[in-house]
């Protein structure tokens, strides 16, 4: 078996597929973060919506991805291609993102919020200066799961016309070509790991050192 050899021999094709794959993942990620983080914030302020929205996210997440791609492909105006792929992947990202934002905001120590309110913070200030910064660790955990998830599921979009790494895997399967399958899977994994690593670096910058566990010393929130 010569995976490296396969990649070298088909360099331009593999490169094009990889580029498409990353482009799709990044677009989906950008849309999902904007959409689902704001949804998560919204439902944490309106708890009555939370059950329904999170429930919807769960239901979508439980539908097999291939059938979801197929379903949306048949919707007029969507059809084969990038638009459907993006939409479906954004829907998949709903569950982990909305849930982690909601859980993150809810896990914020009530006494800290109470103190902030007592100091004279407005509702928006409480959200932006206390709840969101304190929810970041949970939110970031959700984002990192989402990144890996999207990168993986994006391979399935090959069935609705996406020319990405899923195609290598799919064609590898139909041809019984193990090198091709492994090449596709390997690059997908590398992309997922790289994005996860990048998120990890970003996490260290964004999350306050006061919330990061240091040298086995756990933050004693509110104590």
């Amino acid at each position: 078996m010569n995976v490296i050899g396969f990649i070298r021999d088909n360099a331009s094709l593999v490169l094009a597929y990889t580029g498409n794959h990353i482009a799709l993942v990044l677009v989906v990620l950008a849309l999902s973060l904007g959409l689902w983080i704001s949804t998560g914030l919204l439902i944490s302020r309106h708890e009555r919506l939370a059950g329904a929205v999170i429930g919807l996210g769960n239901v979508i997440f439980c539908i097999p991805s291939i059938s979801l791609f197929g379903l949306f492909m048949s919707v007029p105006g969507l059809g084969l291609g990038r638009r459907t792929a993006t939409l479906v992947l954004v829907l998949y990202a709903m569950m982990p993102l909305v849930r982690s934002v909601h859980a993150g905001i809810r896990s914020v120590d009530g006494t800290v919020v109470d103190a902030g309110k007592g100091m004279g913070m407005t509702g928006l200030q409480l959200l932006l200066k206390i709840q969101v910064p304190m929810a970041w660790p949970a939110v970031f955990a959700g984002i990192r799961v989402t990144v890996v998830l999207i990168t993986g599921i994006a391979t399935m979009a090959t069935f609705i016309g996406e020319r990405n790494l899923g195609r290598l895997i799919h064609q590898g399967i139909t041809r019984g070509d193990a090198e091709m399958i492994i090449a596709g899977a390997l690059i997908v994994s590398v992309i997922a790991l790289a994005l996860d690593y990048a998120m990890g670096r970003m996490e260290r910058i964004i999350i306050s050192p006061g919330l990061q566990v240091q040298g086995g010393e756990r933050p004693r929130v509110g104590a």
């Binding site: 120590d109 006494t111 800290v112 109470d114 103190a115 902030g116 309110k117 007592g118 100091m119 004279g120 913070m121 407005t122 200066k129 206390i130 910064p133 304190m134 970041w136 999350i207 306050s208 006061g210 919330l211 933050p219 929130v221 509110g222 104590a223």
Partner: peptide, 29 residues
């Protein structure tokens, strides 16, 4: 909020903002 900014408030659980330094916490109001 305007009223509360003119009234100091101290609670048993302290309620310091864990993501802010001590100086930033004191600078809140």
């Amino acid at each position: 909020p305007t009223l509360r900014r003119t009234i100091g408030y101290v609670i048993q659980q302290v309620g310091l903002l864990p993501h802010r330094t001590i100086a930033q916490n004191i600078a809140l109001v």
